[in-house]
C-alpha cells in the first residue's frame, strides 16, 4: 500500500471540505493510504506570497515539506496552487545548496531542517502516473454518463519545465482520468484558459477576473456541458462562487455545477452526492443531483 501525507492547504479544508472528504474516500478505495499532515499551514499561495517576499514564501513552504520529510512521506496536494508552491520550493531547495543553507538557518530557529528527501505530488498527476487509468476504470462501479468540461487550471501543468507532464498547450491526462469514470470530456473553446483567480488578482481586481471567468463559462455553455470538473479548490471557488458574483454584478446566470475530480470519481465509485458534499456548492446543484441520481447507470 502506498502512503502519502495529505496536504490540505487553505481553501479545501476552510471553504470546500467536500474536496477533503472526497479525496479521502477515493484514495481509500484505491488502496492509497493518506496520513494527516498535522500542523501544516498555508502553502503559501505562490502568486501572492512569492510576489511579496520570496524568503517568506520559501520559509513556510519548506516547513510544510519538512513536516512530511519527518514522517518519511511524499506529499499529496489536491490544489494547483499548493502543488505549484511546494513543487517549485522543493526543487529550488534541492538544486541550490546556498539557498538551502539560508532556509535551514531559518528553520533551525524552530528546530527543523530541510533535507530534500521527499517529492510533492498532485492528486490528478498521481492518479494518472502512479495508479493508472486502467486501475481507475477497474475501481468504477457506477459509470457516470455526463458531458464534462475539464478545467486543468494553470499551475498543474505550468511552468511545464518543472512539472514533467508533457505538453502544457494541449494535455490529455486529466481528460483520460475523467473518461475513465464513464463521462465524456467535451472539447470547448480556449480550454486551457485560466479561471482568473490566481496571482492575487482575485483579491486585487475581482470584477476584471470575473470577466475572465465569464468568458470561460460562456465557452463551456456553448459546448453543452453538464458540469465542470477541476483539479484545484481555488479554481473551484472562482468558478463556483464566481458564478454567484457574476449573477449579482453582471446579471448573468449560468448555474453550472462545479466538481473536483475527487468528487466525480467518488460518484463513479458509488458514493452518494451528499457523502461527497456535491450539495454544498454556492451554486445550487439540486437539479444536477436529481439528474445523476436518475442517470447513473
Amino acid at each position: 500500500m502506498s502512503k502519502l501525507s495529505f496536504f490540505l492547504g487553505c481553501i479545501a479544508p476552510n471553504r470546500y471540505p467536500c474536496i477533503e472528504i472526497s479525496t479521502k474516500k477515493i484514495m481509500e478505495r484505491l488502496d492509497v493510504k493518506l496520513e494527516e499532515l498535522e500542523g501544516a499551514s498555508c502553502c503559501p499561495a505562490p502568486g501572492v506570497f512569492r510576489s511579496f517576499d520570496k524568503t517568506t514564501w520559501l520559509s513556510l513552504a519548506s516547513r510544510n515539506i519538512v513536516l512530511s520529510e519527518e514522517i518519511g512521506n511524499d506529499i499529496l496536494t489536491v490544489c494547483n496552487g499548493c502543488f505549484g508552491s511546494l513543487v517549485d520550493a522543493n526543487l529550488m531547495l534541492k538544486e541550490d545548496a546556498a539557498l538551502k543553507e539560508d532556509v535551514n538557518k531559518m528553520l533551525s530557529e524552530i528546530g527543523r531542517e530541510f533535507k530534500g528527501t521527499q517529492d510533492v505530488r498532485h492528486i490528478v498527476e498521481y492518479l494518472f502516473q502512479e495508479v493508472g487509468v486502467e486501475s481507475i476504470k477497474n475501481a468504477v462501479t457506477n459509470p457516470i454518463d455526463l458531458k464534462v468540461a475539464v478545467h486543468y487550471g494553470c499551475h498543474l501543468v505550468k511552468p511545464s519545465k518543472e512539472r514533467h507532464l508533457g505538453n502544457a498547450e494541449n494535455p490529455t491526462f486529466f481528460d483520460e482520468l475523467v473518461e475513465a469514470t464513464g463521462a465524456t470530456s467535451v472539447d470547448y473553446e480556449d480550454k486551457m484558459a485560466c479561471c482568473g483567480a490566481g496571482g492575487g488578482a482575485r483579491t486585487a481586481v475581482l470584477d476584471t477576473t470575473l470577466h475572465m471567468t465569464s468568458n470561460k463559462l460562456d465557452h463551456m455553455v456553448a459546448a453543452g456541458v453538464d458540469c465542470i470538473v477541476d483539479a484545484c479548490p481555488f479554481c473551484h471557488l472562482q468558478l463556483d462562487v464566481g458564478q454567484t458574483e457574476i449573477k449579482k454584478k453582471f446579471d448573468k446566470e449560468y448555474g453550472i455545477p462545479v466538481l473536483h475530480y475527487s468528487q466525480l470519481l467518488g460518484l463513479a465509485m458509488g458514493f452518494t452526492p451528499e457523502e461527497l458534499g456535491i450539495d454544498m456548492n454556492f451554486v445550487d446543484n439540486s437539479k444536477f443531483i436529481e439528474k445523476i441520481r436518475g442517470g447513473v447507470k
Partner: peptide, 12 residues
C-alpha cells in the same frame, strides 16, 4: 503590475 494571474501562458 498587480493584475497578472500568473497563468504562465506567456512564459511557456
Amino acid at each position: 503590475i498587480w493584475y497578472c494571474t500568473t497563468c504562465y501562458k506567456c512564459q511557456e
